[in-house]
Design a protein around this nucleic acid. Structure first.
Length: 270
DNA sequence: ACACGATCCTGTAAGC
DNA sequence: TGCTTACAGGATCGTG
């Protein structure tokens, strides 16, 4: 489910419930997700006050007044549920707040992760150290992309999914941005003109910004007790639309590389 | 060094 | 209807 916009929306939803509250109960319900969950997580977080929440790439950060920051990744199927009606087999971490809310990290496939770092050193967290810039940040530009893609023989689609080049993009928004910029997903990454890289960076920013805005508009849904409603927009141009019409009039195709689907329009994406 | 496929796990939906 | 198969928004690891 979660790429950058979904994590951004999730963090905003969590912030409204968590910020300023005390974690009165912290209950990991299994020892690991993708990786082991720190054994002292309960002890370090119980009784702490949540001071702030933030996002880095597809990770959410929950900072406390004890100098610890809980870092979560939602993997493919993770989400936070607020005041769920019942706790099931896939609710892996429960947080109870001094306001009486119960939060649950639910992740059936368990590709997500949970970790605890010292707040003054979160930037040294291993997954962050080799990660490229935020696509919505000031460092991300056509000039940056040109430098990062220089000499790369891999496809532009694979390059944009590589978190070392730019962090936070996933399969959906890469497909969408490439369609918006009219660039073929199979085009060699190192051989795209600077002008087209400009269109691509614009498209990436535009699609992410629109998705965050749409997510924000459904925050109420996200925070519903059942948590069942999707919290991101499904206004996709090409993703999941094989056989349908592209805005240009062409027919959207699907191809699979490395087990992952790519949706694109062969008529307008060159 | 780089590029690519296999892999972790479960749920859902399509196909026979 | 029921069983089997394909596929899913991620990221890492091993191999060529």
């Amino acid at each position: 489910m979660p790429e950058l916009p979904e994590v951004e929306t999730t963090v905003a939803g969590l912030r409204s419930v968590l910020e300023g509250t005390v974690l009165t109960r912290v209950e990991p319900r299994r020892a690991d997700l993708r990786f082991p969950i720190p054994v002292d997580l309960r002890q370090r977080l119980t009784g702490a006050t949540v001071t702030s929440l933030a996002r880095r790439a597809k990770y959410g950060l929950i900072e406390t007044d004890r100098g610890d920051t809980l870092i979560f990744h939602l993997g493919m199927s993770g989400r936070w549920r607020i005041d769920p009606a019942e706790i099931g087999a896939h609710d892996h971490l429960l947080l109870e707040t001094s306001d009486g809310h119960l939060l649950s990290l639910n992740d059936p496939r368990r590709f997500g992760s949970l970790d605890l770092v010292r707040s003054d050193a979160w930037q040294a967290y291993a997954p962050f150290t080799r990660m490229g810039p935020e696509p919505l940040g000031p460092e991300f530009s056509a000039a940056y992309l040109a430098r990062a893609l220089q000499g790369k023989s891999t496809s532009i689609k694979a390059a944009l999914l590589d978190q070392r080049i730019v962090s936070g993009l996933g399969n959906i928004y890469v497909c969408e941005a490439l369609n918006m910029a009219r660039i073929s997903p199979t085009r060699e990454a190192g051989r795209i003109s600077r002008a087209r890289l400009g269109l691509l960076t614009d498209a990436i920013r535009e699609v992410l910004t629109a998705a965050i805005a749409a997510g924000g508009s459904t925050l109420r849904d996200y925070a519903r007790p059942d948590g069942e409603l999707g919290y991101f927009s499904k206004q996709w141009r090409v993703y999941g639309r094989e056989g349908e019409s592209c805005a240009c009039g062409g027919v959207i195709r699907r191809r699979v590389d490395g087990g992952r689907s790519t949706f694109y329009c062969p008529k307008c994406q060159k």
